[in-house]
Design a protein around this nucleic acid. Structure first.
Lengths: 142, 142
DNA sequence: CCGATTATATCGTATTACGATATAATACAA
DNA sequence: TTGTATTATATCGTAATACGATATAATCGG
């Protein structure tokens, strides 16, 4: 790829890809540690972010949450159960379609997510340059 | 962050971060599908890449594999057991330190990893522009 | 108004990672 | 050299969580 000949891979190609995956793992490990330090299983943090970070126009439902987290719908159900037990989110009946359950964050969840998001954005600002460089090396023809 | 005031987060900040995580999930989901289509559990694919993509100078051992995959050493042991059972890698006794086990890929593993890596690099070349843009939005002061 | 579809939920199970712990080899100090 | 700490890998039991199969309830389309 470094010579734009997709058929032949050099050792460097493997190394760049391996380094990219390592960088992604480090970021998610950072995120996991930050969530757990706040008393939050990482997937619950992801759910809070997905709910809060959803375009305000559309309603966030169990099904949409599943799509955004790339998990099966029944897994999203279970995840929302855990969020509810932890007092972080609750189901709000959708008056127009009583099959649907919209999701609302508690004040506690908003506060947690606020501080978590600050920390994550800062971390990403640190990581961004090297990630961008890795991505550009992947793309480079030389 | 979009105004470089780390104390206040806008809705857009949450959305950018949520979109970034979504993009990462999509990439790992792509990778998982590609691995499983090749008959490989995704973590075994990661292990092969980490072994192959390790700088040639240093030996790749169980412990180093654990560091690169960000897993506990005993988990790396179990992973290597599975790789060995699948005929993808084997332990090579280190003559200088008989506690250490170096790791060597089989021809089958090399072939699998070659085609997987080609597909991954192509996918990343597609994804790179939007990932870079997301990262730059995260960093932007406006 | 009825069969098909959609949204969510329940239950049992499988995978896999880890904590606690064990074993073997090496390092290093006295 | 010998004894003890340290390092590298391995074993075992357990816990977390995601999914397949399936169920239930609501809505849609004709």
């Amino acid at each position: 790829m470094s010579e734009n000949q997709p058929e032949r891979l050099s050792q460097a190609d493997y190394e760049v890809l391996a380094n990219f995956r390592f960088a992604l793992r480090q970021f998610t490990a950072f995120s996991t540690r930050a969530a757990q330090a706040a008393g939050l299983p990482p997937q619950q943090h992801q759910a809070l972010l997905a709910i809060k970070g959803h375009a305000e126009a559309e309603a966030m439902t169990i099904g949409v949450l599943a799509e955004r987290l790339l998990i099966a719908p029944q897994t999203a159900t279970e995840l929302v159960n855990r969020l509810a037990e932890a007092g972080l989110a609750e189901r709000v009946a959708d008056p127009h379609d009583r099959r649907r359950h919209a999701l609302a964050l508690s004040a506690k969840a908003e506060a947690l997510l606020n501080s978590m998001t600050l920390v994550h954005l800062r971390e990403l600002q640190q990581l961004a340059p090297s990630l961008v460089e890795l991505l550009q090396v992947l793309d480079r023809a030389d």
